[in-house]
């Protein structure tokens, strides 16, 4: 039985069926990438996994536990195990970076502020943001904002990390850094699900690739390094893969880094 098994997710916007019986499986520590044309339902699918998007129907088995995604109580359960990083980050503008990280742990998980701050500082250190703890989000660069958003998500110690286009706002260097980070996290047992347009990132990083089209799963490729070879996925990547040359996690010993 796979670690995560999502089945039969249907989402409707009025008369439109945005998602039609969509699903996928993933093992623990997998990096799963959703790809597909604009409007195919990638963001919507991601949002269903953390209860931000109401679904018509849908089932999720995670770690042996079944969640009826259409049940009103599912949002709480989903949020206990998943965290999401939005494309626009959604950092709280009136709070310092540190408080952005400690807010949910202290007010939702009721951990002590001192302990949360200790962990937050360690996490910021790991992401190269040690000196930004007391800065407001507005004073960060795009790449820094994103790392703060990732750090904020990691504070929840999620089993499932969701990212919507994590690399779209970044220059190639930063893209590679994020790739390295995601791979490290996955190695530690975190399951990562990302939406991405950066085909280079997708093919080098993914253990699974899910191709969405018109709200349906058109094809699934599996196996790191092989997932992109599935014919439908390869065909999609060929027509959409502008930056297939970037290898995000390939060369850590890059001399200028």
């Amino acid at each position: 039985m796979p670690y995560i098994d999502v089945r039969d997710v249907c989402v409707r916007h009025g008369k439109n069926e945005t998602l039609r019986h969509a699903g996928f499986e993933a093992e623990r520590g997998d990096i799963v990438s959703f790809i597909g044309p604009s409007g195919s339902g990638k963001t919507t699918f991601l949002r269903t996994l953390i209860g931000l998007q109401p679904v018509w129907q849908g089932q999720m088995d995670v770690h042996g536990r079944n969640v009826d995604m259409a049940a009103p109580a599912s949002a709480r359960i989903l949020r206990e195990q998943a965290a999401i990083v939005f494309q626009q980050y959604g950092l709280f503008g009136h709070m310092s970076v540190l408080r952005n990280l400690t807010l949910a742990p202290t007010v939702v998980a009721k951990r002590s502020r001192r302990e949360a701050e200790h962990e937050a500082r360690a996490l910021l250190e790991r992401l190269g943001l040690a000196d930004k703890a007391d800065v407001l989000p507005a004073d960060l660069s795009g790449g820094q904002k994103q790392r703060v958003a990732i750090a904020r998500a990691l504070m929840l110690r999620p089993a499932l990390l969701l990212l919507d286009e994590p690399t779209s706002a970044l220059d190639p260097h930063k893209v590679r850094d994020v790739g390295v980070l995601l791979r490290d996290l996955a190695q530690d047992g975190m399951t990562i699900i990302q939406v991405s347009h950066a085909m280079g990132v997708v093919s080098s990083l993914s253990d699974r690739i899910v191709l969405l089209e018109d709200g349906q799963v058109r094809a699934v490729g599996t196996g790191r390094g092989y997932a992109a070879q599935q014919p439908d996925i390869a065909a999609f990547m060929n027509t959409h893969g502008g930056d297939a040359a970037t290898d995000p996690a390939g060369s850590r010993s890059d001399p200028d880094h």
Partner: peptide
Amino acid sequence: VPTGQIAAARALGL
């Protein structure tokens, strides 16, 4: 107040 912040807060479990 940006809706992205509200969605993020919701996803964080607030």
